[in-house]
């Protein structure tokens, strides 16, 4: 259901593992996402969904899993397509 997010993680997260093998609540940092890759991912998400994450949402936790990213987008009023 969160294909777009997974695709962005694939393109920008630079994970050493296949994103599709990760559960939607799996910790992306534990899966090897570096902090710079996480910034690139955040930028890509902002671009793709045309949103801006306010500073208070720019924490590691907000981007640590597919679910967490979907929840953050929902908080900004973006419904991730099923």
């Amino acid at each position: 259901m969160t294909d777009e997010i997974r695709q962005l993680i694939k393109d920008f997260g630079r994970l050493p593992v296949d994103v599709d093998t990760l559960a939607s609540n799996a910790d992306l940092y534990q899966a090897g996402m570096s902090s710079h890759a996480s910034v690139n991912l955040m930028l890509a998400i902002e671009d793709h969904f045309d949103v801006e994450f306010p500073d208070r949402m720019l924490t590691r936790g907000v981007f640590e899993s597919v679910d967490a990213i979907a929840a953050a987008l929902a908080e900004l009023g973006i419904k991730v397509p099923v």
Partner: peptide, 12 residues
């Protein structure tokens, strides 16, 4: 180097 990266996304 870390700051350079964070500055790309931080707003305020």
């Amino acid at each position: 180097q870390t700051n350079a990266s964070l500055l790309l996304i931080a707003k305020d």
